[in-house]
Design a protein around this nucleic acid. Structure first.
Length: 1025
RNA sequence: GCUCGAGUGGCGGAAUUGGUAGACGCGCUGGAUUCAAAAUCCAGUGUUUUAGGACGUGCGGGUUCGAUUCCCGCCUCGAGUACCA
């Protein structure tokens, strides 16, 4: 008999798809295109758990649906294969990261293949492959070769800048560039040495080398970008991060701040994701104000969002790192200021964050001059002012800003009030909307908006400020002091970076004998012996050939120069990979051909986690905008629609370890004390079953509980037994309870622990003892947490596939709940979905009693059998209802509800004894995006020789759903009391008379006359009264 | 603190523009089948009750004939962000 042998079926079709290249996308097609992409995985050594494929399943369903709809779909997959974990592993084991990466990828691929995804693997990319990173390096050089023109609001070739410099100097150049660039004329430019020219150009390049304050992580031995730091520690590993000045490559992403903000309106992304990018970019509108420092030839520039409060300034605060500090500090204050700077530099970022309440600062002794009143304003330094934001200086208006207020209170500085009728005795008044300015000269009696307009005009007229927009977004540090990343195609000549000619790319990672920094503190590439560039012969040569004179730029140089030792960060390769997939044939010649780029354009649907909100998703948008400016790609946004899949959480299991402590008062009696300590030392590990823990008891704490007071006597009895005939009192003990993760595979669905399995699970639990429930079992506690190896709550998809099949796993993951929501995994529930697939299988096989058609054709009971006779009206209704629902659900990414509707359909068709081809054929297509293997198998049995994957999606026909009557809910005062079946063609009056004539109506009215009768034909009847 | 999201049975979750709350599945209870188990099938399953009903979508108000859905005010949980001038 033909049972549902899912393992055989799935194996068969996975082989068939691979062999026939069923899912290969065409770059030339009559069909409309559609591009579905998953955020590509980092191939970690741990392999996949059931949480990882969630997004892949969703995108695969959508992909397969689009194919049924007649689209030419591009659905590729690859690996983000450069990264820290492989390198950390290499440091520990000495294995080349390329090797472990290769192994991890093989494992990932095997796991992915088992799930039946319809990826076009012929287009796979790996960011660590030289054929791929060749183009990452190439794009880097394009950035190196570009500057940002604010007038045209786009990136232009650096060559154009040289032309402008040669003809008119830099006076009229309006570029996004380093601050404080000296002005020069055309003739001065032409007289500059080439090195000087390079130095100047570097200040304009979109990727540039500069001494910047970076986040340095000593444990990882590398700098980190802002988005790689979570709560003041490194995202990977959780190591502390300190601030340090270093010469680093940076990306001038700030040039694109406004466009990155504006572009958000044009893309269909989840609002929370857009919000977090908006916040990250952090646009604020205000103005700059310049204050002269008294008795010094110095000016303090500040940025403020409240220029209207300028008459409320009572002091100024500089960041301790501010350049002016050393210049303006008076002799008397010198020592205090220096001590303060030293103290703040020592504090790590984390300490500064954890401790926002302590107010610290020092007076510099200097005074600034108020631009309007001419008053003297004391200049302080304080670490509440950040060096990296705005100008690193603020005009402090204590009456309007809470931090300034707190600072003023703490140091007894004056708090002048410039707000009409505002109470500032307890806190600052920061309510912009109800502001009326007073005590402010020409701003008196104006509101916030009027005052702001007027003061900006006044500042501009006086030449001491202007309206300005400020962004929180910083330029992105692009150097990493690591091995396993893309080498920069850069060498250093006379201290200036020079690009490797593009025809020489890729610049391959050199071999090193260790993956650690050098003894001199250089990055790992400093260990490479052949890591110098021969400019004349255009090749990599041994470092021995570099003559010291070459580095210093003397005249007798030999043309051989040292190569850059840093590598690129993880986001380099992931910022453009979606374009690489578009190209299938000319990958050697271009990163992607014009034809491919113009055909596929951008990703129509992108699915991945929300953790990439301010990293990958922002950098990709930046690179795409840049590439668009330089004419490399036709689009300005990479991902048209984006969906964040929610995390699948694990259900951790806990056992409860008991620790005993002696509580007997023993005074100066070592012997007595030792007796107890010795006994405690010899006690085996003890675990308490879940229900033996007193309700409300504190776990994981040092609050001890007395054994003799504990309501369950098991602990006392345990001790008594262990004490045996020793001279120790079992009542003289306290204990506490520590929950410990147990591996979920040791626990069954009723939360009962496999005690023997647990003892052999870990060596240190070998002799463990257990206090069991009354029924003799050990029950674990459960808690929903992130799925992770360290919490022992990982469920492996391979196991699920072996036991239930990939189709079941796919459907179950969808069935768990809405795609975007986080939800706990519970293996127990999978039987429902598995049972559904069995029922579906049966629908095409078992000749039911009373089924239509000639049953004798079927040779055996349970053989495949589908009738060619017309389906019943009910079955057609079921089918079309399901077509409608499925289509709507897929288009709204509501995959959980469509699984329900399949279940309903199969339940209904089963009870209708339906076995008509007319219904069962389209049903197979409907289900095929979700459960492709079983659908292919049924499709083949239905007599088709081609894959079901391109069968046209069934057409919904309204006529099968037309009802002639409706079961009306009859409500009294809004409460439904009974239902009444009435023809749908009745008008309001007819419905009313039918309802009023009904005996139950009279019963519920109890003789009252209805005040009102609400009738919505086809919906409801509500009687009020 | 700020921004965003979410609160519905024992559990995961349904409910189109306000119109029969709890679809579907798990779990649980009872039954059929079986030597027994698995598997399968059937029935029941929000709470409460004096069996008519009453109460029920985080809490308190409001709009409405009618509110899980709309409005106002709170509470709790989760995510992001963190002195941003």
């Amino acid at each position: 008999m033909s049972k549902y042998h899912f393992n055989d079926i799935e194996d068969k079709w996975q082989k068939y798809w691979a062999k026939n290249q069923t899912f290969k996308a065409e770059n030339k097609s009559e069909k409309p295109k559609y591009y579905v992409l998953d955020m590509f995985p980092y191939p970690s050594g741990a392999g996949l758990h059931v949480g990882h494929p969630l997004g892949y399943i969703a995108s695969d369903i959508y992909t397969r649906y689009k194919r049924h709809q007649g689209f030419n779909v591009l659905h590729p997959q690859g690996y983000d294969s450069f990264g820290l974990p492989a390198e950390q592993y290499a440091i520990q084991t000495g294995q080349h990261p390329a090797k472990t990466t290769e192994e991890n990828i093989a494992r990932y691929r095997e796991q992915l293949d088992k799930l039946g995804f319809s990826f076009d693997w012929s287009r796979e990319v790996r960011t660590s492959n030289p054929e791929y990173y060749k183009w990452t390096q190439w794009i880097f050089l394009q950035l190196f070769d570009s500057w940002y023109d604010k007038d045209q609001n786009k990136a232009l070739a650096i060559e154009e800048l040289r032309v402008v410099f040669s003809s008119e100097g830099n006076i009229h150049v309006n570029a996004v560039c380093d601050e404080g660039i000296e002005l020069f004329t055309a003739s001065e430019w032409l007289d500059f040495s080439e090195t000087k020219k390079q130095e100047i150009l570097l200040k304009y390049r979109l990727t540039y080398l500069a001494e910047t304050e970076v986040n340095w992580c000593p444990q990882l031995g590398t700098v980190l970008a802002n988005d790689e730091i979570v709560n003041g520690v490194s995202e990977r590993g959780g190591y502390p991060v300190v601030r340090k000045k270093m010469k680093q490559w940076s990306m001038r992403i700030t040039a694109y701040a406004q466009r990155l903000l504006d572009g958000l309106d044009k893309i269909d992304w989840p609002q929370p994701l857009k919000d977090s990018q908006t916040n990250w970019i952090g646009r604020s509108k205000g103005s700059s104000v310049t204050f002269n420092v008294k008795d010094h030839d110095a000016k303090i520039d500040v940025f403020t969002t409240r220029p209207d409060t300028i008459f409320g300034v009572s002091f100024m605060t500089l960041a301790p790192e501010h350049d002016l500090v050393s210049k303006i500090t008076t002799a008397e204050q010198k020592e205090a200021v220096e001590n303060y700077i030293e103290a703040t530099a020592k504090r790590s970022e984390r300490e500064r964050m954890a401790d926002v309440k302590t107010i610290t600062g020092v007076f510099t002794g200097a005074y600034a001059e108020h631009p309007f009143t001419g008053d003297s304003i004391p200049v302080w330094i304080g670490d509440y002012v950040l060096a990296g934001y705005g100008t690193g200086a603020v005009m402090s208006v204590p009456c309007g800003d809470q931090r300034d207020y707190d600072f003023a209170k703490h140091f007894n500085l004056p708090i002048p009030n410039i707000f009409k009728d505002a109470d500032i005795s307890k806190e600052a008044y920061s309510d912009k909307d109800n502001t009326i300015i007073t005590n402010s000269d020409f701003l008196n009696d104006l509101n916030y908006k009027q005052a702001t307009e007027k003061i900006i005009a006044a500042l501009e007229e006086k030449g001491v400020g202007e309206g300005k927009i400020n962004y929180r977004l910083r330029d992105a540090v692009f150097s990493r002091q690591r091995y396993w990343g893309e080498p920069f195609p850069i060498y250093y000549k006379d201290g200036m970076p020079h690009p490797i000619p593009t025809e020489c790319l890729p610049l391959r990672l050199p071999e090193v004998e260790k993956y650690l920094p050098t003894e001199e503190g250089e990055p790992p590439l400093g260990r490479a012996e052949n890591w110098s560039w021969d400019e004349k012969n255009k090749k990599i040569v041994s470092n021995e050939n570099v003559s010291p004179s070459a580095v210093e730029g003397s005249s007798n140089e030999n043309g051989i120069y040292p190569l850059e030792l840093n590598t690129m960060p993880g986001w380099a390769g992931s910022s453009w990979y979606f374009f690489r997939y578009m190209e299938d044939e000319k990958r050697d010649e271009v990163f992607a051909s014009k034809e491919a780029l113009n055909y596929w354009k951008n990703v129509d649907l992108y699915i991945g986690g929300s953790e990439h909100a301010t990293g990958h998703l922002l950098y990709s948008r930046f690179w795409v905008k840049f590439m668009h400016d330089r004419g490399l790609v036709p689009v300005e946004e990479p991902f048209k629609k984006l969906i964040n899949q929610g995390m699948i959480l694990g259900e951790s299991a806990f056992v409860y370890a008991i620790s005993f402590f002696q509580s007997k008062k023993i005074e100066d009696n070592d012997k007595e004390l030792n007796k107890y300590l010795e006994f405690l030392n010899e006690l085996p590990d003890l675990f308490l079953s879940r229900n033996k823990i007193k309700e409300g008891m504190k776990l994981d704490s040092m609050d001890l509980v007395s054994v003799s007071d504990y309501p369950y006597k098991d602990l006392y009895n345990f001790l008594k037994n262990e004490i045996n005939d020793r001279d120790i009192d079992a009542n003289e003990f306290d204990f506490n309870v520590m929950p410990i993760h147990a591996d979920v595979s040791l626990v069954n669905t009723s939360n009962v622990l496999d005690v023997e399995g647990f003892k052999s699970w870990r060596e240190d639990f070998k002799n463990a003892k257990f206090i069991l429930e009354e029924d003799g079992s050990y029950k674990v506690g459960r808690e929903v947490e992130k799925m992770s190896k360290s919490k022992y709550n990982v469920v492996n998809p391979d196991d699920i596939c072996n036991q239930y099949g990939a189709d079941t796993l796919r459907m179950y993951e969808m069935f768990l709940g809405p795609l975007e929501q986080a939800k706990p995994w519970n293996t127990a529930g999978i039987t429902g979905v598995h049972g559904f697939l069995k029922k579906l299988w049966k629908l095409y096989h078992s000749p039911f009693e009373g089924c239509k058609g000639d049953v004798s054709q079927s040779q055996e009971p349970n053989d495949f059998y589908v009738s060619d006779e017309a389906a019943s009206k009910d079955s057609l209704k079921t089918l079309h209802k399901t077509i409608k629902k499925t289509q709507e659900d897929i288009e709204h990414f509501s995959f959980n509800t469509s699984v329900s509707s399949f279940m309903i359909a199969v339940n209904e068709l089963t009870s209708q004894n339906c076995n008509s081809r007319e219904v069962l054929e389209p049903l197979a297509i409907l289900i095929s995006p979700y459960a492709p293997h079983i659908a292919e198998e049924l499709w083949q049995k239905l007599g088709h020789s081609e894959s079901i994957s391109i069968a046209p999606f069934p057409k919904f026909d309204q006529q099968y759903l037309v009802e002639s009557s409706k079961e009306y809910p009859i409500s009294f005062n809004g409460k439904m009391r009974f239902t009444l079946e009435l023809p749908l063609d009745l008008n309001k009056e007819e419905i009313e008379s039918a309802v009023m004539a009904h005996e139950k109506t009279a019963q519920y009215l109890e003789g009252r006359t209805p005040k009102k009768v609400i009738i919505v034909p086809g919906k409801i009847v509500n009687i009020v009264g």
